Simulated scan of single mutants.
Amino acid sequence: MATKFVAYPVVITPEKNNEYYDYLVFLPDFGAYCQANSILGALRVAAKFITNYSMTAALPEMKLELPPASGEQVVTFVNAQITE
């Protein structure tokens, strides 16, 4: 089995009016959202999303460009290990 590492941008936004989750996690290359209760948790759910996505569909091409941040957003890359 071959293993590769991928990196995709994530935008993590504090959720002020959500009683269940503290952060909204957006993966722009996938057009998908996740939720988490910490920044570390946000990175974990984003990596898990990418890994699970790779099991059912081809991953989008990595662009390695960060989208702009606004306000209290955290914008960074998340790495995922993909086993083929």
Rank of each mutant, 00 (worst) to 15 (best):
E84D: 14
P9W: 01
L64Y: 01
M1K: 15
D29Q: 10
S54F: 06
A7S: 15
K63M: 04
N79E: 12
N52G: 00
L43V: 13
V45T: 13
Q35G: 04
L64M: 08
S70Q: 14
K16R: 09
T13G: 13
A47D: 00
N79T: 14
A36F: 00
F49K: 01
N37Q: 03
L43A: 12
N18D: 02
A36I: 07
Q73V: 09
V25R: 12
Y23K: 00
P14D: 06
N18A: 08
P28C: 05
G31C: 06
P68G: 00
L59N: 01
Q73M: 04
V74M: 15
V75Y: 08
Y20A: 14
G71D: 08
I50M: 12
V6F: 03
V25C: 03
V10I: 07
E65M: 04
N52R: 08
P67M: 01
V45Q: 04
F5L: 10
E15Q: 10
P67A: 09
L43F: 10
N79M: 15
V10P: 02
L66T: 03
M1S: 14
E65I: 06
Y53F: 10
K4E: 13
M1Q: 13
E15N: 06
N79I: 15
E61Y: 07
T56E: 12
Q35S: 11
L40C: 11
N17W: 07
L27N: 05
M62L: 09
F49I: 08
P67S: 05
L40N: 13
P67Y: 05
P9F: 06
G31K: 10
Y20W: 06
F5E: 11
